[in-house]
Design a protein around this nucleic acid. Structure first.
Lengths: 245, 245
DNA sequence: GAACTTCGTAAACACCGTTCACTGAGATCC
DNA sequence: GGATCTCAGTGAACGGTGTTTACGAAGTTC
């Protein structure tokens, strides 16, 4: 059935097992508990064997980040699957709620992927990764692109876009257009004002800010149930783009 | 001169040295490098001696957080000292710019204080700490309280405050009033609408979100110079409160 | 000066990441 | 089919870590 050799199959299987155990340790006991010896112990092998698969513990953690992003993307895609394709605001709600739910359910993974300094996690080749994690970034860009591509009216930009950001925002707009186009319907670049691209960036700031503050417990006061605040924030973000439903 | 005994003086001195070395290791080589043995080595003592001062490495890290918050507060207070007492928007700019500058200059310390999950850092007795770090929290509350206490007009609330947040926001308003009153001029509680308190919370979400995204390099695209974006965000936050300068 | 408290030590234990020489089984070639 | 090569996994070792323990040597108190 498989044309791969027996050795290749076993290798791929072991590699998956290693990552799975590493994830389990990360989730259950935190980043520091992801030790090569503990992983090997659970797998019934010895620690040096792991060096046949990863250059170092840091290398393994770096690849874990990719796995986590992929899993998050799968979860968000599942949420998106039940949303009508033409209901863009429902898609935005689904992705944002899904992101928050995932972050609160997996704080250690959130911290590793979204709150690690570059030097504690090794260099992540800044040229290739234009976005936080390939898979999760794809979904974010996709929904963001569709959102601003379908925004109801040429919204008067609430704020002036700083002049010095024009170049960066224009290349980001190109990435958004590519992502949307690759997923299906192409979009007229003219209908994507720079101010909307800027607003999307600001929305990511707020989405990320709220979720991170909640995960890390750094809101300035105890909040009984933060979900209404999250919903209210999303509603305001959409309202500022001209969506009034 | 000092009425403390020789032993007490030496103890206090050693304790300061320990924390200073721990901070140096944190800043220069990251959280994982803050090792009891490394600290002891630099101080010319042995690692078990540190247990006369701290219960464990985790305990030491927890107290480091307090030190860092205090230092951050001192830095922000220095910035505030040169701002006219009646120019509240300038004070807001000073604190926000100072917070961003500090975070970018001390990413490891920022990550430890503002992006650590509760269980990786031990429980921080949620009853006592009403705010992120006592000292830094004091400054934030102080400026935030003064800001909404002096907001120019009874701003029409852009968004409705979710019903379920009223109770939490009211107790937060009380904390804000206490902080401002303890610092000098008392404030009429009536001039502090709940929607403004809510807006302050949303502003913290945006301030924190921008700074954390910049520190962790998680903006969705490469930004040549993020400072204009930060300034633009601050301007918008103030504009939404009715400050138009 | 005796009794007591406290700081620091050395030794030990159980972990950790990582390197290295080596074995044994799968893959390949003749 | 047998020789050869490749490579996953091993055991031992090195230097590092947090932490506990018993003990000595000061400072403090009476």
């Amino acid at each position: 059935m498989t044309e791969a050799t027996r050795r290749e199959r076993l290798r791929a299987e072991t590699e998956r097992d290693i990552r799975r155990q590493a994830r389990a340790l990360l989730v259950s006991h935190g980043r520091d508990a992801v030790t090569l010896r503990a992983i090997a112990r659970e797998l019934g092998i010895t620690a040096p064997a792991l060096y046949r698969y990863y250059d170092s513990r840091e290398d393994l953690l770096r690849r874990l980040v990719d796995d986590i992003c992929t899993d998050l993307a799968v979860e968000l895609d599942t949420d998106l699957a039940v949303i009508p394709a033409d209901d863009i605001t429902a898609q935005v709600y689904a992705v944002c709620h899904g992101f928050r739910r995932w972050a609160l359910a997996h704080p250690q993974e959130f911290a590793l992927v979204f709150a690690s300094t570059e030097d504690t996690l090794g260099i992540c080749r800044p040229d290739q990764r234009a976005q936080v994690g390939d898979q999760f970034g794809r979904i974010f860009l996709q929904v963001a692109g569709r959102l601003i591509a379908s925004h109801p009216a040429p919204t008067p930009p609430h704020t002036d876009v700083p002049e010095s950001l024009h170049a960066d925002l224009e290349s980001f707009r190109a990435v958004l257009l590519d992502t949307v186009a690759a997923q299906g319907e192409p979009v007229d670049p003219e209908v994507l004002p720079l101010s909307a691209v800027y607003h999307i960036t600001q929305s990511w700031v707020r989405l990320y800010g709220h979720v991170a503050l909640e995960v890390f417990g750094r809101f300035p006061f105890a909040i009984g149930n933060p979900e209404p605040m999250f919903d209210s924030m999303l509603a305001q973000i959409l309202a500022e783009m001209g969506f009034t439903d």
